[in-house]
Structures are given as structure tokens and as C-alpha cells.
Design a binder for these strands. Structure first.
Length: 313
DNA sequence: TCTACGTGACACATTACGTCA
DNA sequence: CGTGACGTAATGTGTCACGTA
């Protein structure tokens, strides 16, 4: 599940095998294959099907239900079921289950916002009143002046910003942990439960996804940075070894006085290279018969009894 | 079957507001 | 009290998938 074909032939999400159900605060310390997340973020490759394809960071929040069609899975599930408010009003619910529903259109998206006024004026939609009475501090869109559902702009042209209450944020957060996306019905139910506009819930989820992705990107960057540092160090060490070997080749009489060269042991599972001394470790398979040192190995040219620490092998 | 169009949903970038040091 | 940094709600734009005529 953690993987998806982005059309580039890359399986980017690392499958993160161990942490499919992580919360936003816990990320895979080794998001190896997820690192190109920024590169696969672009346009058509990014979401060939928004409903089916999610970003890796989203997948971290999705468990088994994220397999193929989350929407179909989520459909019919009342997220944040409120005992009494989960039943959506008829006019709200009308056609909401259909992706192409007028109500859904009206309640979400910029187009909706543009068309909302006309639709509302026509009486086809009940604009949810956003009277956040409990949020006294928020004199914004709430109260009686919030007649611009989705518009956000008051008549004075100033953009009103609503500060969600802790309870609202908590519920949204919990819901997001369960599903990072909501279908229109769930959106409306959640909005009703929280006494918010559907558009606000939608926006919150969009922003939340963006924040999570940003966080994951930062983690990826940090990981890549460490990888780069390790590789740089490894490269430096190997360069040094190469120069040492070259020096040895130029002065064979020094062979027997030299410490044996460092050998590299590659872990077959993680493919990480560990540095060991050939004199103290068992030669790894890669370094035995088919060793890249091969005939170039200084030891090959030296009689066995003359090799330093030869008995240790 | 193919095509054009409308629609819904999303990602992403950006703006603007609220809060706090 | 003014201010800058920061978090985040809200907005605008572009894209894709899907349904329909």
C-alpha cells in the first residue's frame, strides 16, 4: 500500500513498512524511497487520480483502507458521528453522495463560491449559518454577519479569519488521523457537528494535508542530508584507500611492511558498507575469490608465511 | 467510439489575519 | 505600544478524473 506508481516507474513511498499508521508527529526515520517526494509532486504525475492516489505522507496516515479507492471505502462511514447531528439535512444531503452533485459543488471549491450566491439566492441551498457563539473571541465571519458562505470576504473587502476553537481543532485532528480526506457527506456531517461551514472543513483538511506533507518533506530532507554526509565521508575514505593502494603498487617493497588494507563489508540486507580491517575480520564473500582486489591484491603476491597476521584468517 | 464540455476534487502557492514574544 | 516572526485560515490557480451530450 505504501507504494504507488507515479508514472515515472518509481516506487516512491518506501512503503515505510513499519509505520503505516503513524500520526503526523511520528515519521519514519528512514524514509528512503520517499525522498523524491518533491520530484513526484508535480502535476499530472502527482495525482493521476486524486481519489485513488495519495502522497506518501498521506499514506503514512492511511492504513488498510487506503488501498484502492478511499472514497468508496469512506462512503457510508459517518466520521465523527454525532449522536443527533449526523443526520444531514435533506437539502444538504440531497445529491451530496454524488460527486457531481450541485450541493457538493456549491459547498466546496472556488467555483462553488462564485456560484454560491446565485444558488443561495435561488433558494436551492441552505447556507449554514456560522454563528460561533461559543467563540466570543472570534468576531469574524461568525455572528450574524457571516452571510458570505465560502466567500470569506466581507462586504468591506477585508478577509475575515476564523480561529478554530480547541475542541473543533481536536475533532478535526482526530478525524484527520482516521482519514486524511473526506467525502462530501462526511464533510458536511463534520461541519455540522463542529458548527462550521463545509468549506471550512474542506479547507482545514487541505491545509492539514499540506502541513503534513511539508513536515514529511523536511524529514526527507534531513534524511538525505545525512545520507549525503555519510556518502561524502565514505567517498573520502575510499579515495584515501585508493591512493594508498596506488602508492603501494608503486613501491612493492613496502608491501610487507604495510598494514593490510581496509576491507569493506557490505551488509546483504541493508546494503550498507561497514569498514573493517581485513586482519581482524573474516573476509566477506565479495572479497574472497572474486575480490575486486584480485591479482592486484598485495597479499596475492606475497608468500603466505610472510603475510602479517596471516594466521588470523 | 471519439470529442468537447462541465463539474468536483485536489495540490500547491500565496495572501492575510491572529497571536505572541 | 509597535513590530516582526510564526501559525494557519482563506483564496486563487492549475490539473485530473469522471460523467454527459
Amino acid at each position: 500500500m505504501g507504494e504507488r506508481d507515479d508514472g515515472l516507474g518509481l516506487s516512491l513511498s518506501l512503503s515505510l513498512g513499519s509505520n503505516q499508521n503513524e500520526s503526523s508527529s511520528r515519521f519514519n526515520p528512514m524514509p528512503l524511497a520517499s525522498f523524491p517526494s518533491s520530484s513526484h509532486m508535480h502535476m499530472q504525475n502527482h495525482y493521476s487520480h486524486p481519489q485513488k492516489i495519495q502522497n506518501n505522507w498521506i499514506q503514512m496516515f492511511q492504513s488498510s483502507e487506503r488501498n484502492s479507492d478511499v472514497r468508496s471505502f469512506l462512503r457510508g462511514i459517518d466520521v465523527n458521528r454525532a449522536p443527533s447531528t449526523v443526520v444531514v439535512d435533506v437539502e444538504e444531503d440531497a445529491g451530496v453522495s454524488s460527486p457531481n452533485s450541485t450541493v457538493s459543488s456549491v459547498m466546496s471549491g472556488k467555483r462553488s463560491e462564485r456560484e454560491l450566491m446565485a444558488a443561495a439566492a435561488a433558494g436551492g441551498v441552505r447556507v449554514i449559518e456560522d454563528n460561533e457563539a461559543e467563540r466570543a473571541s472570534c468576531s469574524l465571519g461568525g455572528g450574524g454577519s457571516d452571510d458570505d458562505d465560502g466567500g470569506g470576504n466581507g462586504d468591506d473587502g477585508s478577509r475575515k479569519k476564523l480561529r478554530l476553537s480547541k475542541e473543533q481543532a481536536l475533532v478535526l485532528e482526530e478525524t484527520f488521523k482516521e482519514h486524511s480526506t473526506l467525502n462530501p457527506k462526511q464533510k458536511m456531517a463534520l461541519a455540522k457537528q463542529l458548527n462550521l461551514r463545509t468549506r471550512q472543513v474542506e479547507v482545514w483538511f487541505q491545509n492539514r494535508r499540506a502541513r503534513t506533507k511539508l513536515k514529511q518533506t523536511e524529514v526527507d530532507c534531513e534524511y538525505l542530508k545525512r545520507c549525503c554526509e555519510n556518502l561524502t565521508e565514505e567517498n573520502r575514505r575510499l579515495q584515501k584507500e585508493v591512493s594508498e593502494l596506488r602508492a603501494l603498487k608503486l613501491s612493492p617493497h613496502l608491501y610487507m611492511h604495510m598494514k593490510p588494507p581496509t576491507t569493506l563489508t557490505m551488509c546483504p540486507s541493508c546494503e550498507r558498507v561497514a569498514v573493517t580491517s581485513s586482519s581482524s575480520s573474516v573476509a566477506p564473500p565479495a572479497m574472497t575469490s572474486s575480490s575486486p582486489m584480485g591479482p592486484m591484491s598485495p597479499w596475492a603476491a606475497i608468500p603466505l608465511r610472510q603475510r602479517p597476521a596471516a594466521g588470523s584468517h
